[in-house]
Design a protein around this nucleic acid. Structure first.
Lengths: 255, 255
DNA sequence: AAGCGTATTCTCGCTCAATGAGACGGGGGC
DNA sequence: GCCCCCGTCTCATTGAGCGAGAATACGCTT
């Protein structure tokens, strides 16, 4: 017996191995890894051994397997994602210090928000995002910003799927979503109270590059109260700072 | 003609492709990528296409290839490296605010210091590290800490190679290095003035886990002056904070 | 110590996924 | 138009990769 019955490539299988790990499964035994990756255990064992030899996976004392440092290093050395994060970091830190609640940096990947950075707060209302985590765009303020300024076919694709509600406040119909996005475009920011978690308000603003294109979104998660809107100017100032940093040493673009 | 003459695996080649990227080559054309990865251009083109289909690489408008967001995501979702970084982040931020200069978090990987995080400062003396970057351990304060508390065979391996000097101050002989490490063990921190760059002093302290093992190092890079030593208590306090965070909700360990 | 159960690695016959040489198409420059 | 460079496609070739089953490793129980 040779070759996988499904005609799969080695790379496809390796990717499936990496995808088997997640925040709830940071280490896995070979057998479980094989099960999750849908591989014969001997095959999984072999691929794991090779990935370990390359440093992309690592083994622990109980033969458990985890993501290797080399994987992160290769991903990070030349990553556009991390270039953006690095440019944004000083502004995220300042915003974090000023607002006192969790701040986030998100990008659009596929049809989802991918969170690139999140600075948490001790007294955070609730933390519903995680670094390298994803959320559907219709439920978060970040997602609303990315949809509002994104390509029209993005919105069509999002609307082609059911809009699942996380709370009674979550946008659940195409009409609601379109109205919300129109408001984002008018106001220049998204403010969603209780859409992901009942007790939290998400506020997000677009982050633009030097060409004026929206490339990311900065957001904060604050308690539901009347003072939420007061955070908007700080957010916008921070986003402008990131834009400036993304342009490099050139002069600011006129608004 | 089939199969590589060198009997290389697909994974080995994919790793070489990723290794071709770096901070000085964030995007590459397929031909250049093939050259750097020592692959036939047709092979490189094919592997790139597949890696792009998995999101591990991405293409730009001029057919340039760059690291894909998915690579970073898979590396980050379950990464022990990022767990450490996340635990350390609040303390790095506080330290950054207090010291006003660049702060760094480094780990030992192989025989080198790998920088996991770096918060920069506007008026930083000099930034000689980068996130996901490596430096030889004998030249940096971080490296001295990791060597001082590391396994003896680590030091032997480091000493088995020539100790290259970056500046006239850099440790350049085994005797100098051993003496410096002994001092680190006595003092509990490393302070190296002008070892990497003439104008900068690096100060590093060990970060321990709940078992008392040194798992990382926190450091700052400050100007050379008599006030440098004053930063040590803040560094040590921050490192203790990280240890507490790494222990989870359990009580503090007695010192 | 022996036995058992589980997990992981090794062996090996088999085969098709991966290879690179060369053709081809596209784009840019002269 | 011609030429050059780049990247993708085609295809004959073959050995890297496969999984079934054996062997080994490990932990636990009696």
């Amino acid at each position: 017996m040779a070759r996988s019955s499904a005609g799969e490539s080695v790379l496809t299988r390796a990717v499936r191995i990496f995808e088997a790990f997640g925040p709830d499964a940071t280490t896995l035994q070979v057998t479980e890894l094989a099960r999750r990756a849908d591989l014969h255990v001997a095959t999984a064992s072999r691929l794991v051994a090779e990935l370990v030899s390359h440093g992309l996976l690592e083994r622990g004392p109980e033969r458990e397997v985890r993501i290797g440092v080399r994987m992160w290093e290769l991903a990070s050395r030349a990553s556009p994602t991390l270039s953006l994060r690095e440019a944004a970091m000083p502004f995220l830190e300042d915003l974090h210090a000023v607002v006192g609640h969790s701040v986030q940096l998100g990008v659009l990947d596929g049809d989802e928000v991918l969170f690139v950075e999140r600075l948490t707060a001790r007294d955070a209302v609730v933390n519903y995002s995680r670094i390298a985590g994803r959320l559907p765009p219709h439920i978060t303020s970040s997602g609303h910003v990315l949809l509002a300024y994104g390509a029209p076919d993005l919105l069509e694709r999002v609307l082609a799927r059911p809009l699942e509600r996380y709370t009674p406040h979550t946008v659940g119909t195409p009409e609601e979503l379109r109205a919300s996005l129109a408001q984002v475009r008018r106001q220049g920011f998204a403010l969603l109270a209780g859409h992901v978690h009942e007790d939290a308000t998400g506020i997000a603003v677009p982050v633009r590059n030097g060409l004026g294109e929206v490339v990311a979104t900065m957001s904060v998660v604050v308690p539901n109260d009347d003072r939420a809107t007061a955070q908007v100017p700080a957010l916008m100032a921070a986003a402008r700072g990131v834009t400036r940093a993304l342009c490099g040493p050139r002069a600011d673009r006129p608004h």
